[in-house]
Simulated scan of single mutants.
Amino acid sequence: MERINTVNGLTIDFERIRNIRQESEFLIIEYNARIEYSKNPFTGEIEKSEISESISKEFHSYESARDNHIDIKDYWNEYLTQKV
């Protein structure tokens, strides 16, 4: 399985996933935080920022969100077992 894959209409980077959860009709995929460095144009100093990203998708029903949650977790587990 590829690191970046599309599952049920969502393009997901399986390497960066920290958590997959469901809240009612919403499916939320949280990624590990990443560090980004940038140069402040006013001070000229390099600044470090921690960026946390997530994907949130609303489904038409709780059952649909649950089914997608299960599918994505299965793909994620498959990716992790192939990675080892």
Rank of each mutant, 00 (worst) to 15 (best):
M1D: 01
M1W: 04
E2V: 00
I4E: 01
I4C: 02
N5S: 11
V7K: 01
N8W: 02
L10I: 06
L10W: 00
L10R: 00
L10E: 00
T11F: 05
T11Q: 05
I12F: 03
I12V: 06
I12K: 03
I12T: 03
D13W: 12
D13P: 11
F14E: 00
F14Q: 02
E15N: 03
E15M: 08
I17L: 13
R18N: 05
R18G: 13
N19C: 10
N19T: 12
N19A: 08
N19F: 13
N19D: 13
N19I: 11
I20D: 02
I20W: 08
I20K: 03
I20G: 04
I20M: 07
R21L: 10
R21A: 09
Q22E: 04
E23Y: 01
E25F: 08
F26K: 05
F26N: 02
L27H: 03
I28C: 06
I28V: 15
I29W: 10
E30G: 15
E30P: 15
Y31N: 13
Y31P: 11
Y31L: 13
A33Q: 15
A33E: 13
A33P: 15
A33V: 15
R34Q: 12
R34H: 15
R34F: 15
I35F: 10
E36F: 12
E36K: 06
E36D: 10
E36C: 10
Y37Q: 07
S38L: 05
K39T: 04
K39H: 02
N40A: 04
F42Q: 14
F42C: 08
F42R: 15
T43I: 00
T43F: 00
E45G: 00
E45P: 03
E45Y: 07
E45F: 12
I46A: 02
E47W: 11
K48D: 06
K48C: 08
K48S: 12
S49V: 11
S49A: 15
S49K: 15
S49F: 14
S49E: 15
E50F: 14
I51R: 10
I51M: 14
I51W: 14
I51F: 11
S52Y: 05
S52G: 04
S52V: 03
S52W: 02
E53V: 09
E53F: 10
E53S: 12
S54A: 11
S54R: 14
I55Q: 05
K57R: 10
K57I: 01
E58Y: 12
E58N: 14
F59A: 00
H60L: 02
H60W: 01
H60I: 06
Y62N: 00
Y62F: 05
Y62D: 00
Y62V: 00
Y62G: 01
A65K: 04
A65P: 05
R66S: 08
R66D: 04
D67F: 06
N68H: 11
H69V: 03
H69Y: 05
I70V: 08
I72G: 02
K73L: 15
K73Q: 06
K73V: 13
D74F: 10
D74C: 09
D74P: 13
Y75W: 02
Y75F: 02
Y75A: 03
Y75P: 07
W76A: 03
W76G: 08
W76F: 11
N77Y: 09
E78H: 09
E78N: 09
Y79G: 01
L80M: 12
L80V: 15
L80I: 13
T81A: 14
K83C: 07
